[in-house]
Design a protein around this nucleic acid. Structure first.
Lengths: 246, 246
DNA sequence: GCGGAGCGTTAAGGATCCGTTAGGACCGCT
DNA sequence: AGCGGTCCTAACGGATCCTTAACGCTCCGC
């Protein structure tokens, strides 16, 4: 596991952090450290503008100082928790036991006392974001003839092509057939070499058994293709490998 | 919101805490304080018995001391995170910055340094449990033949199919049968691998005992399916797992 | 033309997996 | 102690799947 947070593929997935604090020095330190680690940072200096920023920017996580000039920290927490469950990490001076308890019970997710180590704060940040991530989303691939649901591990017919099968009917795939289809669909549009397929399904010692691929490709085509003899989705690239065309 | 944790309706829902620590004094203090607040407490004195206790007791939350005699704390965390996402609160001596980061990145949910205030620990405990609560989902699943109420842990017959049983009659399920049904219904439509089922019901060391699943699936089908020999709801995907179709 | 390589198709044997049943162990209760 | 309920374990027939081999086809280079 990489020690730093996931930078995302192509930089598309950036974690957005809202820092609510009235001390310029802390604001500055956090902005520098978080930006350096590819977080998207926005800031607010009091509770009122903080709440407005939450509603406007929808950050992925909130770092909240309890000692704000305009309102009590727990009020801010309640104001956020009233309508969302965005993780909140609370920042506060040392030794305020009861304040800690109140903040956590108000709905805060974590608590860090000042002075704090930046590494620790970053680690807690990663933990909070990781917890909030609902799931490694469910990819669904749809074609004119069938639909592949990777999460449910299921294929359903879209437009009953082979011999008028009813739309919405599930297609029964064996474990090996499913593995093969999953790899091809996950590399949708890209060419996958036979060696890679054989290695991922049967193991490294089967890299030359291209026979297996021909057998299972034929079975998959018979179950999925409108015209198995002239494939529209599961294409062969002679001498190279196979490709799924959406 | 009440300052103390939810006592549950009728006392049926009790939060179960596993404490893994080798210092008798801390063990004793936690046991007293947690029991007084109506938590169900079990303990373990090293990593090995701790991991075994997790698999056996399925606590709702784990309090883990990093300074164990037999293994490194992060190893314990990895051992737990390998198969479940039960919240883990880590306990450790003051000033071990790098240890904190390692534990949090290994998958711990929170971190408390010794000496700690009992009030703070309790607050963090409540926060961890609250976060783990999946949400007030839709706790009722209805089919043409029976209705599953996740919240009430009850199944009632809808259209008295097997041998003219009256509609509305409750179906008696054993604890194991209920666990199995609950997991399948919560993943409604999705395929659940037998390894996952075995892990969540019997623990990670039973991942190969697919025998159990066959026995209990048969019992569930006999109680719920109109035609147990040709299942409409509890489907088998040979070699892959089982699926509940609504 | 001719032969080989790569691919598609089919079928059969053997291995694996599943449904079902039954009996004994273990627990809580009367 | 007796009893009902639940859980674990083993065994067996049957269904399903994997492996393997064989054959026809097309596309090349020779």
């Amino acid at each position: 596991m990489p020690p730093d947070h996931d930078p995302g593929l192509g930089g598309a997935i950036v974690t957005r952090v809202l820092v609510v604090d009235d001390e310029p020095s802390i604001l500055r330190a956090l902005r520098i450290n978080l930006s350096a680690r590819e977080y998207d940072v926005t800031t607010a200096v009091d509770g009122t503008t903080g709440l407005a920023a939450v509603a406007r920017d929808r950050p992925d996580v909130i770092i909240l100082d309890l000692g704000l000039p305009d309102m009590d920290g727990t009020e801010v927490i309640h104001g956020v928790r009233g309508w969302t469950s965005i993780p909140i990490i609370v920042l506060s001076a040392w030794g305020q036991e009861s304040q800690k308890v109140a903040a956590l019970d108000a709905g805060a997710d974590d608590y860090v006392t000042k002075p704090f180590g930046m590494d620790e704060l970053l680690a807690r940040l990663r933990a909070a974001v990781r917890r909030a991530a609902p799931a490694p989303d469910e990819p669904v691939v749809v074609t004119a003839d069938f639909t592949v649901d990777l999460a449910a591990k299921q294929v359903v017919r879209s437009g009953g092509s082979p011999a008028g099968a009813p739309a919405g009917a599930p297609v029964r795939l064996t474990p090996t057939e499913w593995q093969l289809l999953e790899i091809l669909v996950r590399n949708s549009g890209r060419l996958v070499s036979q060696k890679q397929l054989l290695r991922e399904i049967w193991g490294p010692s089967y890299e030359t058994e291209s026979n297996y691929l021909r057998v299972y490709l034929a079975q998959l085509r018979r179950k999925l293709e409108p015209e198995p003899s002239r494939p529209r989705y599961l294409l062969t690239e002679p001498g190279m490998g196979y490709r799924f065309r959406p």
